[in-house]
Amino acid sequence: MTEDILLEARNLTKAFGGLVAVDDVSIKIRKKTMHAIIGPNGAGKTTLFNLLSGVLPPTKGEVYYKGEEITKLPPYKRAHLGIGRTFQITNIFPNLSVMENVRLAAQAKGKDNFKLLRRADDFQQYIDKAEEIIEVVSLKGKELFLARDLAHGEKRKLELGIMLACDPELLLFDEPTAGMSSEQVPELIDIITNIVHNGDRTAILVEHRMDMVMSISDIITVMNQGRILAEGSPGEIASNPQVQIAYLGDLYGELA
């Protein structure tokens, strides 16, 4: 079932000097699934993310997207292929309006990036698309706010909006709820599941909130010390004794 695989990493290794952050990781992401990657702090989740999105070059190993090797492709080219990502630490354009943040992302794939002598506001299609997306991530009414003036939760939503405006097929969420209060989380989960399921998209999710991971993901990969410890459905993972010892133990025990 190779056509079923959207993204594949083979023997991916990343070493920072002597520290091996990601150690010989092979992972397959199936189409239209919500694939969560969990693991204790320092397990190499974010590094794996950076390897998949092209922010860091791997020391060894390859990455395939739709069967084609993309290991050496810079991030902006991966974005054109349909890989979008969010960041653990909010990463937006702070001094631009919410509208402009999303509009720029919408413009990225278009063919109007090199029109030096036309007015950007005359390209209505990007503005329309941006408005549509701002509604999806429930930031309506804040279009003209500067991004830096938004509340933290709203910035996280804007981050989703920027990613969404690039029309990605594969979404990489790096701790989308980082720094958010528990009351704000359900709304964000709704937005994320809506984006993924209604858009027929595939998502990789790194998250610390176990309740969230267990409820929304189809497959879970558990990482520990740069290696893959286990992989399976939420039920399998929760009942895996190895995982419970290494990581889940207290956290999931509390919830159950």
């Binding site: 080219k77 990502r85 937006i92 354009f93 631009l96």
Partner: peptide
């Protein structure tokens, strides 16, 4: 507009495809 955004946040630029 892209040049201005580039001033603001180069990493994000890359991730959205510029």
């Amino acid at each position: 507009r892209v040049i201005i955004a580039n001033r603001e946040n180069e990493d994000r630029m890359r991730m959205i495809g510029y």
